[in-house]
Amino acid sequence: MRSRNDFKENFIHGIFFILGLITVGCVLLITVYLVISGIPAIRRIGLLKFLFGKTWKSTAQQPQFGILPFILTSVYGTAGAILLGVPVGFFTAVYLAKMAPPAIKSIVSSAVSLLAGIPSVVYGLVGMLVLVPAIRRIFHIPDGSSLLAAVIVLAVMILPSIVNVSITALEAVPKEYEDASFALGATPTETYFKVSVPAAKSGIAAAVVLGVGRAIGEAMAVMMVSGNAPNMPRLFESVRFLTTAVASEMSYSSGLQQQALFSIALVLLLFIMMINVTLNFFLKKGTDEK
């Protein structure tokens, strides 16, 4: 009887152990699959030619596979989104975490969580029909589908991540710090910006890094507003991101072209991995400081 029970318990333990390891399995699956399918094209094209080539002509007679335009577009687009989105997100977070009256706080917080829930294709649709024509009219260019449109859409899309993570960090600042500052005669606004924000700086940095990850990985919304031509990035020109390069050609690609798309995905995954490591660094630093 005893041993039968033991067997049953061990068996169940084993099942849960396998379930526990399933996330690890998925990460391995994704990495291994992308590496295996991404390496052949890089080897055939040549790593330097692939990463630093300036022309992408995948369907030409003499196909050229240079993804520098995509890499730079992704980097510039993300930087632009951070530049626009972070200040708005940061000040909103400080306001919500510290200054806002409870009623306003609950309204604005639910607005932010709604922003996070809106599907990316809806952002893309509104961007296509509002933002793109507006850019065309304001800057007098033939087509408004451009890097600028993508930057603005991305800035809105990363706002919720930045606000939410920053609020968590700001709310974790010990109340004693702020009390000490009040006792020294600082006003609330001074205290929050000169004491609370520096104390929460790792968390806020993590929020920014998370925003970078979101922006660089977004595909559909960007695809709908950025025009999708493989140009070197310019603010008012049609551009193609790493994500949209994969998405736009996948459905009709084959052979070396398809393998090259897997290689692009592999490059994207490397970017994301680097961002993850940075994110963990800041998050860990944040908990160590407490």
């Binding site: 994704i30 595909a219 998405a247 995954l269 994301i272």
Partner: peptide, 13 residues
């Protein structure tokens, strides 16, 4: 790591 991977990569894999 899984929650940071972009959805387009999930699509490919």
């Amino acid at each position: 790591t899984l929650s940071g991977i972009p959805s387009i990569i999930y699509g490919l894999v």
